[in-house]
Nucleic acid binder design. Structure first.
Lengths: 185, 185
DNA sequence: AATTTTATGTCAGCCTTGTTGACATATCTC
DNA sequence: GAGATATGTCAACAAGGCTGACATAAAATT
């Protein structure tokens, strides 16, 4: 039913490429359709899990992201959160305000710098964050359980390398903790 | 600066869990924070690449997804596209209409079933789709190049297993082609 | 042949979550 | 004290989801 075409090739080298250099160069340029599409489908399903639960609380995905990182990093500041999420403070403020009002997050004035707001998840906030994390963990574990033990290290190494090089150090610190240097396989 | 807390544990077993069963059960329930967060960061950067180019054409990510799958699967029907993207026909129609008007996609009446619309990328459409796919491929290849040769197979196996089990067969067919059965590592 | 189902299109309105720009306040730094 | 910084807030807008209702052509069923 669905034609099994490879339009990329048809469009790319439809007569002859004036650049020449066949072989490995062409391979390097051949789109990795499989990984591109699998990434799309996997992410689609991965983020869909929490949606139903979030709905019950009147929250959306934006709330989830904020709650997750605050729960994981108690004392996170607004600036750090903005840097992680890469959204504007106005966007953040909208969802953050709701999380504060509904008592899932609380904000305390910074001690060393009283301009800062330090964000903490409340008991209720931690509970919801954990519930959602567990849901996603179940999916991850299902996938990993069918694979070699080294799979986890390999996958996390891959995902880390997919990130913008300027950001890997920052992400590494956020994900694995500030202390460890962490070496990859 | 950032506390290295593990709120999950604090919140989960803060006194004693009446459920009991310590040991491996707790391990199974421990959230895979690293993979959850790396997935978020990696996807964030992965989809950001095409954004600048899409901007030049007045398109967004929604257009990208539609164009990508139509380009990959010439003759795709509306129904199949809706099933892939998991959005409503109204949402699809909005972006599809623009892709048709700007001549990146064309629609032909189905031959066997004249109710259907078969979608095809135009030359211009293929060109843009390929440009975007190459951009994402570059990122993927950069990551893979630093890893073992088996990494690609392992990663695609992982992503495939992350997908809803009911969908894996369908996705496999879409991604790897209808003929092959494809066995994983 | 008449009826029902299916594939698609379209109008109208709403929600979430992103954006920009402007401006206010408290606090820190120099 | 002046300027920079961290945050908050108002207003308006855009993209891209959603629901519900209704229309049409073609296929399928009875």
């Amino acid at each position: 039913m669905v034609p099994d075409a490879i339009p990329a090739l048809k469009t790319q080298q439809p007569g002859k490429d004036p650049g020449k250099d066949p072989g490995k160069d062409i391979l390097a340029e051949l789109p990795a359709y499989d990984l591109i599409e699998l990434f799309f489908f996997a992410y689609r399903d991965f983020v869909s899990d929490p949606d139903r639960i979030l709905d019950e609380y009147g929250f959306g995905r934006a709330h989830h992201r904020v709650l997750h990182f605050v729960s994981r990093q108690p004392g996170l500041t607004i600036a750090e959160l903005l840097d992680i999420l890469r959204i504007t403070k106005q966007s953040l403020n909208r969802v953050l305000k709701e999380l504060l009002e509904k008592n899932f997050i609380e904000s305390r004035t910074g001690t060393s710098d009283r301009r800062q707001r330090l964000l903490f998840a409340t008991a209720q906030g931690h509970e919801l964050a954990l519930k959602l994390a567990k849901l996603q963990t179940r999916r991850i574990m299902r996938a990993l359980s069918e694979m070699e033990p080294e799979a986890k290290e390999l996958v996390s190494g891959y995902l880390l390398r997919l990130i913008d090089p300027d950001d890997t150090a920052h992400v590494k610190q956020l994900v694995f903790g500030p202390k460890e240097t962490h070496k990859e396989t």
